[in-house]
């Protein structure tokens, strides 16, 4: 489904990703954990084409986004690149809803502009997904009238409206209090039960253990551990994970 190999990325002199590889299969939920500055968000941003890599290859559904040619990363041409990235969906830590649009329009506008869906189809899809995240009654509200948890659920619905093959979350609950966090994690949990392919960058260790099939632990721009959630976070977890969890 998704394959990233030997990803390298630097900001100035800081090497944020040093040869990171990652595979995600269909229906798999992968949690990426690690300290702030370990490179996990940057990795996710590279996978979503929000950052360009300095080296390495990324394939999504078998199609190459970037390949190495003569030692240099070469990206697909603009049009194909945008089309390929439609397979990916992304939910940000601070939602990035469109403040000037109602909840419903946040969900319908991208469908109409990007997928060319008609009003009726876009709205039906939007209402369907609003119901799914439990916000049917908020269709006419504006983002400023919603709580953080509600905003995040709208953002998840907005991403799902585009029918992505893989949904990515960049610390989706880091801006929320514990109660709102549960509200959002509940939605993600339900998506996992539907066997949606997801990559979740998170600080929620318990959530990672309960929901993820696989957990990747990053430190200093490299993958330190990559294995089944029970193995990485279970009773036999490594000293590195124990130190990270503050035990």
């Amino acid at each position: 489904m998704l394959e990233a190999t030997h990803i390298r990325k630097s900001f100035g002199d800081t090497r944020v990703l040093k040869d990171v590889s990652l595979r995600v299969s269909r229906g798999e939920v992968v949690a990426i954990i690690g300290r702030s500055g370990s490179g996990k968000s940057t990795l996710l941003r590279c996978l979503n084409d929000l950052e360009t890599v300095d080296g390495g290859e990324i394939r999504i559904g078998g199609q190459a986004l970037v390949t190495m040619q003569a030692g240099q990363p070469v990206y697909k041409k603009d049009g194909e690149r945008r089309a390929l990235m439609l397979k990916m969906g992304m939910v940000f830590q601070s939602y990035h809803l469109f403040p000037h649009c109602s909840v419903l329009r946040n969900l319908t506008m991208p469908q109409k502009l990007v997928l060319g869906r008609g009003d009726g189809e876009a709205e039906a899809k939007a209402r369907d997904l609003l119901a799914k995240v439990g916000l049917s009654d908020k269709a006419g509200a504006y983002p400023c009238q919603l709580s953080g948890g509600q905003c995040q659920r709208v953002a998840i619905a907005r991403a799902l409206c585009m029918d992505p093959d893989i949904l990515c979350f960049d610390e989706p609950t880091s801006a929320l209090d514990p109660q709102l966090t549960q509200e959002v994690l509940g939605v993600i949990r339900r998506l996992a039960q539907e066997k949606r392919t997801m990559i979740v960058v998170t600080h929620e260790m318990r959530f990672a253990r309960d929901v993820a099939d696989r957990v990747i632990y990053m430190e200093d721009g490299v993958v330190v551990q990559d294995g089944p959630a029970q193995e990485v976070l279970g009773d036999h977890r490594s000293d590195a994970i124990r130190a990270f969890a503050g035990e």
Binding site: L50, R82, F92, H96, F98, V114, L115, M162
Partner: peptide, 15 residues
Amino acid sequence: GQYEACRVLGMRRSQ
């Protein structure tokens, strides 16, 4: 973040 949201949704720069 507004630009990034548009980008991951597949919107063109003019849109």
